[in-house]
């Protein structure tokens, strides 16, 4: 019975692991921290799995547990700085035909996102994942209206980081 549960969990997690990778990418810098958070999220998901009834999709459920772990439960073991050197992330862009201006913009954009705080990152993350405001508000536990307002503020903040002089 418990072996079955374990098997079903591992299989589903393996298929949906990119959700966790993406959250790790946003909340950590460096491979070690990435692996560390990935492991903690996996443990938390496994602990919560017996209560997962399957009335929502595995992925929807995983989003929430993973985000909660990253924002709330995870203890950063090493001191890490939020502003990341983008050079380490370049492999994400490799397979594109190079548009230099676009690439430069993307670099700056990623850099700007890393400067946001944990909660702002969560909102941006769900936005990038195409989640609607209802899901964003339910996941974070804030009202839908306020989630919208906050999202607009974050956009403003990003603009300011990209263009501090406002020209």
């Amino acid at each position: 019975m418990s072996d079955n549960l374990e098997h079903s969990f591992v299989k589903q997690l393996q298929e949906n692991q990119n959700i966790i990778h993406k959250i790790c990418r946003l909340y950590t810098n460096g491979d070690d921290a990435h692996k560390d958070l990935f492991q903690e999220i996996t443990i938390q998901l496994w602990k919560a799995f017996p209560k997962f009834r399957g009335d929502s999709k595995f992925s929807t459920w995983a989003y929430r547990v993973a985000l909660n772990t990253a924002i709330t439960l995870y203890r950063k073991t090493k001191r890490s700085i939020n502003t990341i050197e983008f050079e380490g992330r370049q492999h994400f862009l490799n397979d594109v035909e190079y548009d230099y201006e676009e690439e430069e913009q993307l670099k700056l954009m990623y850099k700007a996102v890393y400067q946001l705080n944990d909660i702002e990152k969560a909102l941006i993350f769900m936005y990038l994942e195409d989640k609607d405001y209802q899901e964003i508000s339910e996941t974070l536990g804030i009202s839908e209206v306020n989630a919208r307002v906050k999202m607009n503020r974050i956009k403003g903040k990003l603009k300011k980081i990209l263009n501090p002089l406002g020209v």
């Binding site: 996996t42 862009l93 676009e102 954009m109």
Partner: peptide
């Protein structure tokens, strides 16, 4: 810029080094 980021973000979804089932077994 945000639209650009979104496009890139979603395109890169599959660029992560995949963790095997055995590794997940070990982790839990």
């Amino acid at each position: 810029e945000l639209d650009l980021l979104k496009k890139d973000w979603q395109k890169n979804t599959n660029s992560f080094e995949q963790v095997s089932e055995i590794e997940i077994y070990k982790m839990i």
